[in-house]
């Protein structure tokens, strides 16, 4: 491996064989961190995420990557995404035992024993990017909003820090950043997806347990995912229009 960057850029015919989106994405990366994506049209996308419970191995890679990518404070009270471990004693879905040590950032030290008749699985959580967001509804000034491409975003420079949205989120996805005193939450890596990259959490997920999807793109695999799996969203009774779809979600998850 002896190419340097300039040689590489000149030599690279590989660009041509990549898909348009991928080469655009790589172009951004190689050009250094770009300001924003000029070619991106928000109205052509409708972002969602697919999570396959059976694929999650609880490695915590998503949690670490998210904190790094989005500069989230490392204390155990601030997470844009986190992973929960469920332990459901047989036949008692009303009383699962749940934990999430440091949000799963350091993985999950063994806690349960095999063969006790329980059901065990991990549940990655993040903002559900609801289409009818209770958090957006309550924001008094419009500092949090649903973008035209279906992402619930925060305008940090406009946020009052009243915390009403934190109260209104049924999923506990929001927190106040102790450094900016504004609210913070998963932005679905808006700076990445607008450049054709996937989110940091999906990027590092080793098993493909979580994948970003564009519901407006007919060729996106998320359609296949939604068609072939039994899918559920979290707390459907809240009628939030959540767009993080879980395959094989157990009834005990809340």
């Amino acid at each position: 491996m002896t190419v340097n960057r300039r040689q590489f850029v000149l030599a690279s015919g590989k660009y041509l064989v990549m898909s348009a989106a991928a080469s655009r994405a790589v172009g951004y990366v190689l050009a250094g961190s770009p300001e924003r994506a000029p070619g991106y049209s928000a109205h052509d996308h409708w972002w969602a995420m697919a999570i396959d419970i059976d694929l999650c191995i609880g490695c915590g890679g998503c949690v670490r990557a998210c904190k790094e990518e989005n500069d989230v404070p490392l204390e155990p009270f601030f997470f844009r995404t986190w992973v929960e471990r469920y332990h459901v004693p047989e036949g008692d879905i009303e009383h699962p035992m749940v934990d999430s040590p440091n949000g799963g950032y350091d993985g999950f030290p063994e806690r349960y024993r095999e063969g006790d008749g329980s059901k065990n699985f991990f549940v990655p959580k993040l903002c559900n990017h609801c289409a009818h967001s209770p958090c957006v509804q309550v924001c008094p000034v419009g500092a949090t909003f649903e973008s035209p491409d279906g992402v619930v975003l925060v305008d940090k420079d406009y946020c009052l820090g009243c915390r009403y949205c934190v109260q209104a989120c049924p999923y506990g996805c929001r927190f106040i950043d102790p450094r900016t005193h504004s609210v913070d939450k998963c932005s679905l890596c808006y700076h990445r997806i607008t450049k054709g990259l996937t989110t940091a959490c999906c990027e590092v997920c080793p098993t493909g347990a979580r994948t970003l999807g564009d519901l407006k793109d007919p060729s996106d695999p998320i359609h296949e995912f939604l068609r072939t799996n039994m899918v559920q969203v979290l707390k459907p009774q809240m009628a939030t229009g959540a767009k993080v779809y879980y395959a094989d979600l157990d009834g005990s998850v809340r």
Partner: peptide, 12 residues
């Protein structure tokens, strides 16, 4: 028991 991690600190 279990709190969602972001819930541990009270907001109001």
């Amino acid at each position: 028991g279990f709190m969602y991690p972001n819930e541990v600190e009270l907001q109001w």
